[in-house]
Design a protein around this nucleic acid. Structure first.
Lengths: 104, 104
DNA sequence: TTAACCGTTCGATAGTTGTCGAACGGTTTC
DNA sequence: GAAACCGTTCGACAACTATCGAACGGTTAA
């Protein structure tokens, strides 16, 4: 069963806009999302997040992003990738990701 | 001088996207913004906000919205209107307001 | 198998935030 | 002027959150 998935993500149908916005309303998380906005998997160890935070804090933000419905986690042995659920998000919230990428 | 303005708003040039998103990342505030999304002034006393909160809490949210750059306050004697800074926001963050209005 | 590595989780902490009722100041109405 | 009204501010409080270091478990490499 997939119940053992250590990194479960909410069904997009259950994702609430307000939760997505709250997840985006943090400098570290917004920066992460912008980086992974291409929809490709990015290694969590990428040293170019540009964030001056500890690895436990970074892990916390990854979890918040995932639980809000923004991202999914892909496990490769001992390394993880983070991926924006771009297609699903674009369908559920048209224009939202585009809007936060256009630097204001 | 306008320094006495009791409800100062930030210059749109100084408004940060992350602060706007954080302001929107609350159920009460998101609902308010959606209501005033037409860009018209709405009386704060409007009894159709649909929020079950005290007037002091409502006042707190109005302040948060204003300080984040989303709204302005228009004083009419003892009553106040709240107005979304729609045109400015659309220019600074194209598509953002539209995106949060499209019910996902 | 031992060591190094990746990332999470735990426990603690300080700061922020949403909430309320009471009090207050300004405005309108009587 | 007195009373009613609108909305903010204040003080308090509980809940949440961002942060860290240490410890841990799983995976890969030596």
């Amino acid at each position: 069963m997939a119940d053992d998935d250590p990194f479960p993500i909410p069904d997009m149908a259950e994702v609430e806009l307000v939760d997505v916005l709250r997840a985006l309303g943090d400098p570290a998380r917004l920066q992460i999302v912008r980086k992974v906005a291409d929809g490709e998997p990015w290694p969590k160890t990428d040293d170019t997040w540009g964030l001056n935070i500890s690895k436990s804090t970074l892990s916390h933000h990854f979890r918040t992003l995932r639980e809000s419905g923004l991202t999914r986690t892909i496990v490769h042995g001992r390394t993880h990738d983070i991926q924006l659920r771009r297609a699903e998000l674009d369908k559920k919230f048209p224009g939202l990701i585009d809007a936060i990428l256009r630097e204001g």
